Amino acid sequence: MTARGLPFTPAAVIFDMDGLMLDSERAIIGCLAEAAREAGHDLPEVLWLSMVGHSEAVCRHLLDEAVGEAQRELILQRSHVLYDAVVAAGVPHRPGIIAMLDFLQTRGIPRAVATSTRRPLALKKLAASGLLPHFDAVCTSSDVEHPKPAPDVYLLAAHSLGVEPAQCLVLEDSPTGVRAALAAGMYPVQIPDLLEPDDAARALGHVILPSLDDARQLLEQQLAADSLL
C-alpha cells in the first residue's frame, strides 16, 4: 500500500542496515556468486536472492542444500575475503539515506540501527561508510537470542533509545524485517531493494514506498501537521 500519512508522530526511527541504508545486498551477492564460481559452482541468482534479509544461519542452510557443507565453507570463507575488501573501501549508500538522517538529527528524533549482521562487521560497515556517528544505538544479531523475523533486535533498539515500541517507526527493505518490526509492535515502512514484495508480504498491510526520499517526505508531512495543532 502507499501512504496517505503516518498514523502517529514517531518518537524514534529504527533503521535496518543492509539494503536499506547501504547498497550491500548487491555487494554480498556478488561476492558469494564469485566465490561459488571460483569453486566450480554456477549457482542461480534466485538462490542468492532467497538469502536477502535472512540470518547467517539461514543462509548457511540454503548453501548446504545447494552445494553441501564442505563446499559451503569454502565458498563462505572466500566470499568473506572478497567482501572484506568491499567493506574496507566503504559500502556505497542507498539513495536518500544522508538526507533522511540529517532531517531526523536536525529535529532531535532519536535513531537506532537494528540489523541481522553480527556486531563486529556491522560496526565496521557503518564506520567505513561514515554512517556510525548518525546513530544513538546500534543493535545487532550478536546482541539478541533470536534473529529477524523474531522481534528481539527491534525491541532491544527501542529499549536502548528509551522509547516504547509502539512509538517507533521502522524503515526496512525486506519482508523478513517487516515481520520482525510488526512482531515488535512497531510501525514499519518498507523501501524494497532487490526483492519486490510478493503477495504474502503485501498482505501484511504495511506501507511500501519507492525510496527513502518518499519516506522522509512522509515524515515531513506528519511533523508539519503536528506543528499546526
Rank of each mutant, 00 (worst) to 15 (best):
L131E: 01
S174D: 04
G185M: 03
E34F: 11
P110S: 06
D64T: 11
A122L: 08
R37D: 13
H206Y: 07
P149D: 07
A112Q: 01
P92N: 10
P151E: 03
A85R: 15
A128T: 13
L195N: 13
G5S: 10
A158H: 00
A200E: 15
A150V: 08
Q190P: 02
L82K: 10
L101D: 03
E69A: 15
E220C: 04
P44K: 07
A88C: 01
S160C: 12
P7M: 04
E38P: 03
H80A: 14
R216L: 13
P10T: 06
R118L: 14
R72Y: 00
H41S: 02
T106M: 06
R118Q: 14
L132E: 13
A183E: 02
P10S: 10
P133F: 11
L223E: 02
D198C: 10
A158R: 00
R72H: 03
L219T: 05
M1A: 12
D64N: 14
S211C: 10
G177Q: 03
E34A: 15
E196S: 12
A166C: 12
C168P: 02
P92D: 11
P110T: 08
H41Q: 06
P95H: 11
V87P: 01
L74D: 09
Q105C: 07
L204H: 00
P147L: 04
D18N: 11
A201P: 09
T115H: 02
E196W: 02
E220I: 04
V46G: 00
D152N: 05
L218I: 08
A122H: 04
L82N: 11
L182V: 10
I208L: 07
L6T: 09
T117I: 14
D213Q: 14
F15E: 01
R216D: 03
L155W: 00
V113I: 15
H206K: 01
R118T: 03
L182I: 11
P165F: 01
L219Y: 03
S211V: 08
A11V: 01
L6V: 06
V207I: 15
L74I: 09
S174E: 04
A128K: 13
S174Q: 03
T106Q: 13
G90N: 05
L126D: 08
A122I: 10
G53W: 03
L101K: 04
L132A: 15
